[in-house]
Nucleic acid binder design. Sequence first.
DNA 1: AGCCAGGCAGAGA
DNA 2: TCTCTGCATGGC
Length: 304
Amino acid sequence: MTAIRHRVDWAVKEYDLAATLESGQAFRWVECGGSWEGVVGHRWVRLRQESGGGTIQVGTVGEPGDWRWLKDYLRIEDDLGAVLESFPSDGPMTAAVASCRGLRLLRQDPWECLASFLLSSTKQIPQIREGVRLLCERFGEEIEGPVGGGKVFAFPKAAALAEVSEGALRECRIGFRAKYLKGTAELVARGELSLEAVGGLPLERARERLVTLPGVGPKIADCVLLFAYGYPRAFPVDVWVMRALRELYFPGRRPPMARLKRFSETYFGPQAGYAQQYLFHHVRMMAGRVVNRRGTGEDKSYGD
DNA sequence: AGCCAGGCAGAGA
DNA sequence: TCTCTGCATGGC
């Protein structure tokens, strides 16, 4: 017996669903027998992409309406070809794109994205996922899931987390990040920072607003600006991207962070955020296997 | 055992 | 403007 009541198939070109859902921008997707199950807003969703890759099969239990909410989340209508065309045609970017053509950015709910990345500092992706899972189970609203499956929860609202004690948040294994999460949840719940208003600002102003929140610095702000609001030039620099920029574009040098930021803001073009996600994915894949870290001798120097 | 993980805040130079 | 350190927790 299947619990899925609503289905649709979407034809896609160059969409790597697995890479996208696993790429460290969203933290609630779970692979189940070749399908991906997760929650978007208040809806449980199952996604599947067959080996050919040309179709994404969608299933839900609740009324899906016109599916706009999911098309927007998956950014299924992005012209990826145009995005890839806009990248600088250098060796590192070519290699990064070749390693994972079809990787996409998502458009997530700003609050969920912000709260999730508040848990991210000096944590590995599996630990972030665990923290997010516990927060949802303990403080999220239960929503309709597949019959016979376990309980399903929406991501907890800011108002809900604002009411929880710091100690109870800490019991979600999030450590010192609990006070940041609570503090930010309070400001957002009280409307002292309107996440909706942030989306109407130009990039730099939006970033200025977000970093006023406790626990939110430039990296987390840029994650939210890129993965939720969709600012195409937001460019989060974490330890992986920093390593990639240094090794690929400044070999043998130690440029300061400010220099790397300046470089990334100008060099990668109008879709720098997409370029960042390809670099992030690429260096993580490279680190996962045995790599000759001494390079191939064709190092090229960029910058001054 | 020590180091690192999609960092940030506070202090001091 | 910088660099340094503490901060929880878990995995290797």
